[in-house]
């Protein structure tokens, strides 16, 4: 009798544990992922998106990769004092709990380098985003014409 009670208690505790684990794992949503089309000869482009963390745990975008680009870095542009600068963000992009973080032109962007082929407007390019807590998140970048990048 006591033994049965103990095992049902164990079951209950483990259910709570797993439910808690699932709920605590942050879910990151990606909105409006896009990349600028490139001309032939160009091996670099900029990627943008909004990272949405609806969870109660802070997370961080740590790295990004794609089969069609040799290297993707996370960069920050600035134009202080009439000088345009661009620097890698070595610690990635913090995504605080319940927040939206925008990667947008002239701000944070994915610096997509060593393109294996020009990016043609209208296509979709698969991308893997690695988050500290949420793990790997897949996204698909819409290729936008260079002259009309939203």
């Amino acid at each position: 009798m006591a033994r049965r009670r103990l095992s049902s208690l164990y079951l209950l505790v483990s259910i709570f544990f797993y439910v808690g684990l699932v709920c605590a794992t942050p879910k990151i949503a990606i909105e409006n992922p896009r990349v600028r089309a490139t001309a032939s000869g160009q091996t670099v482009s900029g990627g943008y998106m909004t990272l949405i963390n609806d969870g109660s745990t802070a997370d961080r975008l740590v790295s990004v990769s794609a089969s069609w680009a040799g290297m993707i870095q996370i960069h920050q542009s600035s134009t202080d004092g009439g000088v345009m600068r661009m620097r890698e963000m070595p610690d990635g992009v913090p995504v605080p709990a319940r927040s939206r973080v925008e990667l947008k032109p002239r701000g944070m962007h994915l610096m997509i380098m060593q393109l294996s082929a020009p990016l043609e407007a209208g296509r979709s390019m698969p991308l893997l985003l690695q988050f500290e807590k949420a793990g790997t998140v897949k996204a698909s970048l819409r290729v936008e014409p260079a002259g009309a990048m939203p």
């Binding site: 160009q42 482009s45 542009s77 345009m84 661009m86 610096m111 260079a146």
Partner: peptide
Amino acid sequence: TSCPDVCPT
């Protein structure tokens, strides 16, 4: 041309 962000914008 290798400027991915500010120049094309």
